[in-house]
Amino acid sequence: MTDQPLFKKAFPVKGDFASAGEASVKVKNILKDIGYDSGVIRRVAVATYEAEMNVVMYGGGGEIVMAVNADHVNIIIVDQGPGIPDIKQALVEGYSTATEEMREMGFGAGMGLPNIRKNSNEFTIDSEMGKGTRLDLVFRCGG
């Protein structure tokens, strides 16, 4: 028997700052509307926002796919951007290649990826230079 999600939906992420964050708000609102576990909603909101901002700032746009299951939520975030040359370094708190302009807007603390990792129960990051970056996240109820 395959494990079919109760609900699955993809959200496009545009590469511009004006609409940045909107896909995460949609993801959160869907989970709220179906009355999902509030702890999972809180963690998904933080992680998805950070991942969406990275897709906007570095990935040039991409997609968020959410799959809701009875006891966990899967979130996949993909972009076809430049990729991350050194994933280990990118995961270090405080490491950032944000531009001066991004920093003036309050981005570039180098906390995004660490926040995503902290808020998810499973965190997998794959990145290939010139191809793009993919995050696979799992959020478990009661976890």
Binding site: A18, G21, V25, K28, Y49, F107, A109, M111
Partner: peptide, 29 residues
């Protein structure tokens, strides 16, 4: 923004120099 998204609680009032549409996305979330 990464600090705010990580550490604020629902119902908080946020004091900041930042104000642009992404700030509002953080406050909404």
């Amino acid at each position: 923004l990464s600090d705010v998204i990580a550490h604020t609680h629902a119902g908080d009032i946020w004091i900041t120099l930042q104000v642009h549409p992404n700030t509002i996305a953080v406050a909404t979330l």
